[in-house]
Amino acid sequence: MTGLSEVPHKARAVLDEIERAVVGKRDALTLVLSAILAGGHVLLEDFPGLGKTLAARSFAQTLGLEFRRAQFTPDLLPADLTGSFIYDQGKAEFEFRQGPLFTGLLLADEINRTPPKTQAALLEAMQERQVTVEGETFVLDPPFHVLATANPVEYEGTYPLPEAQLDRFLLRVGFGYPDSEEEWEVLRRRLERQREEQTLNRIVTKEELREIQAAVETVTVDPDIGRYCVALAAATRKHQHTLVGSSPRGGLALMLVARAYAVIAGRDFVVPEDVKAVAVPALAHRITIRPELWMTDISGRSVVETVLGQVPAPTARDRTGSAR
């Protein structure tokens, strides 16, 4: 049984192993791992060629999860994801052939290239962790995580995810370009490897991952920290630049990811710094900016940054008022 005390060591081992493949993205990888340990799904949004797919594959390998990739194209149908009933002539009956959703870690590549109907099928599976085909419900075995990618460069022929569906993702993370040294390190490692594919070692098993996720549930969250998360989410709704702010689900996501982030940092309790560290990736994608501000540089990120600078954080004096 994996206890909370062992989790930081294992989490760091996982990140170290992934960094063998994905160079210099420790912060982003830590966020993605936090979301997985919190039991959620992640939207990776960035330019092509920055290692989003590699990162997803690396997480699957190191976390001992079965990995499947679905390329989201305009002609992808819901049944292509969920699976469908196929007639077996030998048995003279229909049998269910599982789609790529039946896996441990699904890479939904370029999720915004497929029509809303197919997006909805995936997002329903993400939320309910089950799929229904022709009236029959199939449960997706845990752990089930989706790492979806979206390319923000090309908008032609895309179907941007509606806000209600973006809300299903615990985090939206960008990797960003590596600096020149990191980029050379990518090239150097490829030369050293003498082959294209990168194979990573499994650090934890599927069962251990579930134990770690259960251990994360025992992390202490002070009531003042919980109220701080609520206040941050609520403040995005009152911000002058927002048309629609974060839902209560955003505040919940903030607390859940902060909890996992604290565990990776080696603590069994959440501090305000954890909340601040994950606030932008947890809340920014849940905010809709007013249409008249689309021509400006105001974004969900800037709103969250502003809110972080305005909402009072839990202080020492709150504690002395209720000294234990």
Binding site: T30, G174, K276, P281, A284, W294, D297
Partner: peptide, 19 residues
């Protein structure tokens, strides 16, 4: 408008916030 929206989305890429 497309360029600004694209830039806004790109600058909205998110990472760990350092105080």
């Amino acid at each position: 408008l497309r360029v600004v929206r694209r830039r806004r989305r790109l600058t909205g890429r998110v990472g760990v916030r350092h105080s």
